[in-house]
């Protein structure tokens, strides 16, 4: 990757509620580098940092990046982006680039869950959970904290059983209390953990069914890295799901591909140079030795 010095390249930056991701693609639309880091409270600083890191990883400088699209909750805090695009659109594009025949995508992030229906690579419908942390990665984090486990370990342990206990609480905080109650009743830990995954999967699959799930189904987002969650989604959905090698970066990847598309449109219409000049005059970002 480091021998690439010619451009143009395209970047997608996804500032999510928990994690920030950046992806670089080349002129053929192939991914050249990606990075993932915690978002934290300072979105602008995080945007600068992931951009700096992904440039370094790709072995290129910012001036080789012809177009940048930002997405995610913090997309407005990426001042060097040429354009902002909603994460729903970017996720759909990213997933379709990895799995061209995809019809349904389920994405579970740190604080939200969304279900996308995709056709010919485009988003045609979607639903999101927007009122409650149950059914999101936050629910898992609370369970992991309660049990003193890390998330990966929790997933592995849950796979040891086929007898999940029923977690009835719809509220993340009450579910935490329910987990403690189940432990004190002497229920085996793997059964409790499998029950936690099934509880989350049930909520998300309910959302998916409102959109009429059509296979193939792709499962993305940070939570898709967890083996216990993948199994639970497949169990509740009743169909296998495809998981990308790096399920966290589909939004950033989609943003980078859309950046590539947008660049081509501007070149074709002869508007790119004027756009770039305007953008450069607005930029006030220092990327250290990788900056322009």
């Amino acid at each position: 990757m480091n021998d690439l010095t010619s451009g143009p390249f395209f970047a997608g930056i996804d500032i999510g509620s928990t994690m920030s991701k950046a992806v670089i693609v080349d002129a053929q639309g192939s991914m050249r580098a990606y990075v993932v880091g915690q978002t934290g409270a300072e979105h602008r600083l995080r945007a600068n940092k992931v951009m700096e890191d992904v440039l370094q990883k790709a072995g290129i400088t910012l001036d080789k990046v012809a177009y940048i699209i930002s997405t995610g909750y913090g997309r407005v805090n990426v001042p060097f982006a040429d354009k902002q695009v909603t994460e729903l659109t970017c996720h759909a594009r990213g997933v379709a680039s990895l799995f061209p025949g995809v019809r349904t995508a389920i994405d579970i992030g740190g604080q939200d869950a969304k279900v996308l229906r995709i056709k010919d690579g485009k988003l045609i419908d979607f639903l999101t959970n927007d009122k409650c942390a149950a059914g999101t990665g936050r629910f898992l984090e609370v369970a992991a904290d309660t049990l003193g486990l890390d998330l990966n370990e929790m997933g592995r342990i849950s796979l040891q059983t086929d007898k999940p206990v029923r977690i009835n609480s719809l509220c993340t905080i009450f579910a935490q209390q329910e987990i403690i109650s189940r432990l004190s009743e002497g229920q085996p830990l793997p059964d409790i953990l499998a029950g936690v995954y099934i509880a989350i999967a049930t909520r998300v699959v309910k959302l998916a069914r409102q959109l009429k799930v059509e296979p193939p189904v792709v499962f993305t987002g940070g939570v898709a890295k967890n083996a216990g969650m993948v199994k639970a989604i497949e169990t509740v959905l009743g169909t296998p799901v495809l998981v990308p090698q790096e399920p966290l970066i589909t939004g950033a990847l989609g943003a980078a591909i859309l950046a590539h598309d947008q660049y081509n449109r501007l070149i074709k219409s002869g508007e790119y140079d004027a756009h770039r000049e305007k953008k450069l005059s607005e930029a006030r970002i220092d990327f250290g030795e990788n900056g322009r």
């Binding site: 909603t86 659109t89 988003l123």
Partner: peptide
């Protein structure tokens, strides 16, 4: 804010249909 983000994505849906 969240609704506006979804509205932006919904434009693509409306164009499709």
């Amino acid at each position: 804010q969240e609704t506006l983000a979804r509205a932006e994505a919904f434009e693509q849906t409306m164009e499709h249909y």
